[in-house]
Each structure stands twice: as C-alpha cells, then as structure tokens.
C-alpha cells in the first residue's frame, strides 16, 4: 500500500460523501458547533479564573486542540474500521479485505477512511494556529519541528488505542464499552496533567501514556511545570506514538490470525 493508493481511497470516500453534500456540510457544521461548545466552556472558565494549573486561555486552547487534532487524524482511519471490526468479521465482510494484494490492516483502514473528521480538523487546526500566534514561546526551527512530529506521534497514539480496543473486540465480549471508557480517559488530557495527583501523573505517562499526546510535548515547548514527571521524558514523544502503533498493529494481526485459525 503506497501513499497514492491511500489517497485514491480517501478521494473516493470524499466523492461518495459529496453525493449527499447537504448532509455532509450540515454534519461538519454540527460537529464544529459540538466541539466549539467545549472550547467555549473552557473559555468561560478561564474568563473567570484566568489559569488552570498555571496555563492561561491560549495555552489551554492549544493543549485541547492538540488532543482533538491528533484524535481526528488517528480516528479518521481507525474509528470506523475498529468500531465495526467485530461485525465485519462475523458477517464475512472482512474476507474480501484478506484477498487484496495489500496488507489487510492498510486495506481496511484505507477502505473505511472517514472523511467526516474534517470538522474536527478544521476547528482544532484553526484554534491551534490561533493559539500559537498568541503565545510568545521563542519559536525556533527545532521547536516547530518537534511540535509537528508530536502531532504525528499523537495521531499514532489515538489510532493505536482505537486499534487495540477494536482488536480486543474479536476476542472478548462486549468490548464496545471499552471504546466509551477510552473517551472517559481522554478527559484527563483536556487539562494540564500536573493538576492531578502523583499516581495519576505516573499512570498517564506509563500504562496509559496519554500525557505524551499533548501535555508533555507542550510542557517542553512552553517550558511548563511537569509535576512529578521529569521534564526530559517529553523527549520520548516522537517514539511513543510509533511504538504504540506498532504494538497495536501486532495485536491486530494476532487477533485477526485467531479468526483465520492460524496456530490453533
């Protein structure tokens, strides 16, 4: 699977959505309003209290945007296939994916690419750019590059989480509750991780390393307090995403192999 083939799939999905243009645009609008409301509540809160854990409004906006943006990129190609995976396998719709001359994970994610995340990307991307313009962070080429890589790595982390849960749905019953659980955990990184107790801070950098999605890279760039977590750990951001994605991909393979009956 190369990039041009992936883009071909994405283009077809876009074209398909454009068959119902009005519904699509309304949907984009509704989702912008939906996420916009969350931003608005954060803004109202900071109007009153000025900072949360030492982060002011543009900084909180940046923190939240980085989470939404990376989620949108990761979810665009994993949300639909992973929430549907159990059904796909049960109904045999997964079979045609296995007889394509390409990697099944790539084929599946390309084929079920969801262009509906455009709304998330437009909104969070826009606010991200706005908040960056409001910060005086002594931008250097290094910092900019680090932020860029953090976006990609964060997208991998979100995709990895969805992939792990989707793969688990092939093995355990009622895994859909895990998807909801995942969204509850996301709530942690809407705020600076340093406001939580030490145990939570450690949890969010180790077992569920959500802090690497937005808090740690931004703390490094904006030179913020990282609580009990050593700031240097933030340098691991570029590799945490790919490593998690690789683990998730292996899990996907093991779980789909189980369906295929390889090794028992």
């Amino acid at each position: 699977m190369n990039m041009s083939l992936f883009l071909h799939y994405a283009r077809l999905r876009m074209k398909e959505r454009m068959e119902y243009r009005a519904a699509f645009i309304l949907g984009v609008f509704a989702q912008i309003v939906g996420y916009g409301a969350t931003y608005f509540v954060l803004w109202l809160t900071l109007q009153k209290f000025e900072t949360i854990g030492g982060w002011n409004w543009p900084e909180i906006a940046l923190l939240y945007s980085l989470n939404v943006l990376t989620y949108a990129i990761g979810a665009a190609y994993t949300y639909t296939p992973m929430t549907e995976l159990e059904q796909l396998v049960q109904k045999g719709t997964f079979d045609p994916v296995l007889i394509r001359p390409n990697n099944p994970f790539m084929t599946l994610t390309a084929q079920m690419f969801n262009v509906g995340y455009l709304a998330h990307i437009l909104l969070s991307g826009g606010i991200l750019v706005w908040s960056l313009s409001r910060l005086d962070a002594d931008w250097t080429f290094g910092k900019a590059a680090f932020l860029m890589i953090s976006v990609l790595s964060g997208a991998c982390m979100h995709a990895a989480l969805l992939t792990l849960i989707g793969s688990a749905s092939l093995v355990i019953v009622r895994a859909e509750v895990l998807f909801r659980f995942n969204y509850s955990l996301q709530e942690f990184i809407s705020y600076p991780v340093s406001i939580f107790g030490p145990a939570i801070q450690i949890l969010l950098t180790t077992i569920v390393p959500l802090a690497f999605i937005n808090f740690l890279p931004l703390a490094l760039i904006l030179n913020k307090d990282t609580g009990i977590i050593p700031r240097e750990i933030a340098w691991l951001t570029p590799i945490v995403g790919p490593v998690l994605m690789w683990l998730a991909y292996r899990t996907f393979q093991v779980c789909t192999n189980r369906y295929q009956g390889a090794g028992g």
Binding site: R180, E187, I200
Partner: peptide, 23 residues
C-alpha cells in the same frame, strides 16, 4: 458493563475535582 461505567463516572468526578482544586 455497568461496573466499567461506574469506574468511568468516578474518573470523571475525580478529574473535575482535580480541576476545581486547581481553580
């Protein structure tokens, strides 16, 4: 799945308590 949802709600409460402690 109820126990997982209870845990999720408790997490929610815990997060908001932490936020208000900070605020």
């Amino acid at each position: 799945t109820v126990w997982l949802q209870i845990v999720a709600s408790l997490i929610q409460v815990g997060i908001q308590v932490a936020v208000w402690t900070a605020l």
